[in-house]
Write a protein that binds this DNA or RNA. Structure first.
Lengths: 108, 108
DNA sequence: ATATTAGGTAACCAATTGGTTACGGATTCG
DNA sequence: CGAATCCGTAACCAATTGGTTACCTAATAT
């Protein structure tokens, strides 16, 4: 059903709201795992697993600093998502235009 | 672990490569289910389930035409994804600039 | 009216997800 | 050294996913 490479998939990585929240948090700067985990209502190992998925998707990088592991965002892989979704921009704008025409009663 | 509203989540809907392929196919025009299913190496019920997830995420619309159900793309919800990912564009461009500086040996 | 076709849905199954607790390896502190 | 801290990972579990086959309804065709 799934090849193991799917675990490195960027779309899968950002599909989870917790992982998006982690990324959003890391935009304000790198953070050690415990500090990160404190912001969520789940245990540190759970957050650690999410970080592992983000790491395999190359969306975060781990920098070791003594006992700590500072996670930093490396958002480059998101560009693929941006490019994919951008190919739909023309479509949804056409749809909105159709809706506008419909609402305004323009039958052209 | 998941509230049922998560099933209507756009991120979850586009996380699956089959569902992205369905959307990509529907950009070339609406299609009945069987014709759609013929393009994939899975049974029609499986495709039908994927269409259900896309429908609940409001990414496709079903138009009934006799025995057929024509599925059409309604990509407006993708704008939310586009907006989320766009907030990272500045970050990955900064990262690429850092890499460029590093490769070119600029220590500034 | 009956047969055929399109397609949704239920029931079921194996694999995956997303959490937990328990443990272990590094690193720092006393 | 020994104790404490940071954090990854293994083992385990319930819920979800993503597929299947079987069956049903609605609509067309003969």
């Amino acid at each position: 059903m799934h090849r193991s490479a799917a675990h490195a998939d960027v779309y899968h990585a950002v599909a989870d709201p917790t992982r998006r929240a982690i990324l959003d948090r890391l935009r304000r700067g790198g953070s050690p795992v415990s500090e990160l985990a404190a912001g969520f209502r789940m245990t540190r190992p759970a957050v650690s697993k999410h970080l592992g998925i983000l790491r395999r998707a190359r969306l975060v990088r781990e920098r070791r600093d003594g006992r700590q592991r500072i996670y930093q965002i490396t958002p480059a892989p998101l560009e693929a998502v941006a490019q994919w979704v951008e190919t739909y921009r023309a479509f949804w704008q056409v749809n909105l235009l159709s809706l506008k025409r419909h609402v305004e009663g323009d039958q052209s």
